[in-house]
Amino acid sequence: MMRYTIHRLLLAVITFLGITLVTFSVIQLAPGDPIAMQVSPELGLEMSQHTYETLRAHWGLDQPISTQYVRWLKRLLTLDFGRSISDHRPVWDKIAERLPWTIALSVLAMGISLLISIPTGVYSAVRKGRTFDTAVGTLLFALYSVPGYVTAIVLITAVAHIPIDWLPISGVRSEGFADLSLSGRVVDLAKHFLLITICFTYPLLAFQSRFVRSNMLEAIGQDYIRTARAKGLDERSVMLRHGLRNTLIPIVTLMGLMLPSVLSGSAILEVMFQWPGIGRLMFNAISQRDYFTVMGISSIVAVVVLLGTLLTDLAYAWVDPRVRYGG
């Protein structure tokens, strides 16, 4: 287990270096000067040659590329991403106040989808070809083909027209949130979470249920299931103790693989629901050509994804003895 952990950690470091190198190269190779970009010529602002040189030196852009990369890495480690050009706040502060909202959404979406998809997938597999399986299967396949943002627009329109007054369609807090009691605040937050969480969760749910089902079917076909039956175990124990346990292993891997796509999905949905998350920050930064904020977000997202993958790898080793004890 120790060796495995070290191995995975090393791989994560290599991947991290790879990602930052790609990100860094994109900055360097991209047309346009980040310093010049900070001033919008269309506003008629001009930057003096002196200011320009000073800024270049400040960001180390006058150094050779390899030095720049090392410095950039160092700054990354100290979470120094510079200041945003839109409000001149440190980029890290902006990210830090947004990141929890996105992570809360992702964790909530993944948690809910797991809670629902495992029983659904298992039950579908056990009842393969029966009414439940066919009906749920068709529904999930259709859901899987509806992108979250499409549902979001439909829901927003529906809520606006039905009209459901108590259901907010944007932001995270109502006006006067500060005056509410604790329970009132919780309810208010929950209301704001409701629609966006639905849109975040159901694509995951649809995908995961199908995944659980097919993995469970594969597990059921294995010889050890027959052995378990031959022992005299009842079907329930056979399915849960022997079938499900082997199905959980690939699900753990799937969770790690899905993290990037969950975060990807955040951009559009957060903009639609005006959610104060990292995706909307990214959108705003890009719209304002807020160069350092964009780079900061990219790096942080990469780190979050890597951490997620690393955790998944370790969890995988924890559930699969073949990995734990070196197969």
Binding site: T15, V22, V26, S261, S264, I286, V294, S298, A302, V305
Partner: peptide, 22 residues
């Protein structure tokens, strides 16, 4: 394989957005 792993690790929508800045 390593290159693939790196690209997979990156949320593609964010990468696309990043590139779209330039």
């Amino acid at each position: 394989s390593r290159v693939i792993e790196i690209v997979i690790c990156f949320p593609d929508f964010f990468l696309i957005l990043t590139v779209m800045v330039w």
